[in-house]
Amino acid sequence: MSYMKTLLAGCTALTLSTGAALAQDDETRVIGVSIPAATHGWAGGMNFHAQQTVERLEEVYPQLDFVLATASDAGKQVNDIEDMVATRGIDALVVLPFESDPLTPPVQSVAESGAWVTVVDRGLSVEGVEDLYVAGDNPGFGQVSGEFMVSQMPDGGKIVVLRGIPTTIDNERVEGFEQAIEGSGIEVIDMEHGNWNRDDSFNVMQDFLSKHPQIDAVWASDDDMAVGVLAAIDAAGRDDVQFVLGGAGMKELVKRVMDGDEMIPADVTYPPSMIATAIELTAVGLTSNAPVSGTFTIGSVLVTPENAEQFYYPDSPF
């Protein structure tokens, strides 16, 4: 994995307070993992990697116990975390917050109880709560996508953009993208929310095609949306669209990049397997003296036909 690592360890190479774990191997320690349910493709992949990692680590570390809970909304996730503390007495919590604001107080109280806290992907609203933050790079995701667009269209051109569900994640991505294409002659002629959903993006793209006689390329900004966009272009029989750029690294689209499909020349990763990084690092922190506190940013990488093989996981549901 060629993740761009920036381990901004909190300057002090904090020797873990739990480092004493080595001396007391017979004591079982519990790691709670709380993640959103598999309601869309990316989350499905994240659930898959979480389960795989938990299964693997339970064999590697007999002294560790794992509790995995999936929540369909923020309220349920708060309950999950409260239950983990009350009934399982967790020593560490790995959490991918559904939403930042509602999850901040409960995670804060877990941290105050002395347990290790690892936050994944979406940060909390208050800084300094977590011991480890494994972050996806949303502005970087937009930027890599924008840079690829510029490299594909050196003379500029007209593109349309499909956005995700209106959230901070989506805003950061689009801002990064707009900065990258600034001054390149690439003109964004339209932008709508496709909500990271195949059906919505199909409808939006159909309407874009009716509205604009000339579209040179599409930034679908997500692989599920790219699938809808491709179907709409196909059905309209339009040949002015040269390519579609998705994102996230869905296996079907990575496969098409690998096979050299001209409509899908590249993809940009936002790996759901970042949950695995978080669980592994937390386990390392609990069982060894290696310092793992700080921020771990997982960079977004451009997938091209040359390197696509490294990003292709045929067994994953995503």
Binding site: A38, G41, G44, F48, D224, P317, F318
Partner: peptide, 11 residues
């Protein structure tokens, strides 16, 4: 349907 698709997409 989520369970049938293993959290992903059935194609």
């Amino acid at each position: 349907v989520t369970w049938l698709a293993d959290g992903g997409t059935l194609s």
